[in-house]
Design a protein around this nucleic acid. Structure first.
Lengths: 155, 155
DNA sequence: CGGTATCCGTAAAGATACTG
DNA sequence: CAGTATCTTTACGGATACCG
């Protein structure tokens, strides 16, 4: 790449690369200083990670199988997701040097141990979905007439 | 940029307002069509929601108390978070029309019921934090020498 | 097949100022 | 105190193209 004569502050290209690197690598460093609770969130909040764990609960899967199971995930996001999970030791990645290549992902023991709390959460979600949707409908209806903090006034 | 005289497609101002409206209101509609698993995630993935539930497990709190407990949340994000939780029926919001104003947030029964699975997840995180950090360190070290898919080659 | 690199749009998060 | 409104910054996520 063209690093010019003296020094370019942020050539917009390098910046993007840096961002990418930070994202792919350990963006956790950015949140270091936050409480451990927040770390947990970054672990499961990345939209696809939980789904991957659930799908792999069924047994090892190849890249394409994962992608098909997740209906809607892009190649990029799936790659980032499995890399992150591999990094955290939740899944293993095994390459078979055949042609065409074959890569299998599977839950590690650590990943297996995450199944229990995740499924508990899933169970809660299923049990209370109707309640939540009802609450939303109620809220949205009353929000039309009471725009802001005029609801639930005590006294 | 050069939109001609006749009709402005997205006046950049209205667009922002629309976005804000969608965000504050029911952005869930955008994800409708996704699977229920994804809905669950949008429920807890918004970075502060889980923390708020945890803090409120200790008992009702006022706005400022919540903000102090969460160290680092902005006024805006806290407002959005509690609104979302209120909408979903997980917390209640009670206004005392005193001066200065006083608003208390508390877990509803539904919110209380979420404590169990959340704490289970938190327990898992605490139990395995060391393991995960070790895995990360190992991964990052080996990733330096094996840049890509050259690790864990079978055969 | 299983990725990586790049570009770009949108959504989330933060800072700040102002209101009842 | 408890917000709302506005603006800016940052991160997330998708589409595409190309490589081994």
């Amino acid at each position: 790449m063209e690093q010019s004569n003296t020094r370019v502050p942020t050539p917009d290209k390098e910046l993007a690369e840096l961002k990418e690197h930070l994202r792919r690598g350990n963006h956790a460093e950015l949140r270091e200083g936050c409480k451990p609770g927040a770390e947990l969130l970054s672990l499961i909040a990345e939209k696809w990670t939980v789904l991957v764990v659930i799908v792999l609960s069924d047994g090892p899967k190849r890249f394409k199988e994962l992608q098909r199971s997740l209906t809607g995930v892009s190649q990029r996001m799936l790659t980032l997701t499995v890399r992150g999970l591999e990094r955290d030791g939740l899944i293993s990645r095994t390459v078979f040097p055949t042609v065409p290549p074959r890569v299998e992902y599977a839950l590690t023991d650590l990943g297996e141990s995450l199944r229990t709390p995740i499924f508990a959460l899933g169970q809660w979600a299923r049990d209370n979905r109707a309640v939540i949707e009802a609450a939303r409908a109620r809220y949205d209806r009353s929000a039309e007439s009471a725009p802001a903090g005029d609801r639930n006034v005590s006294g």
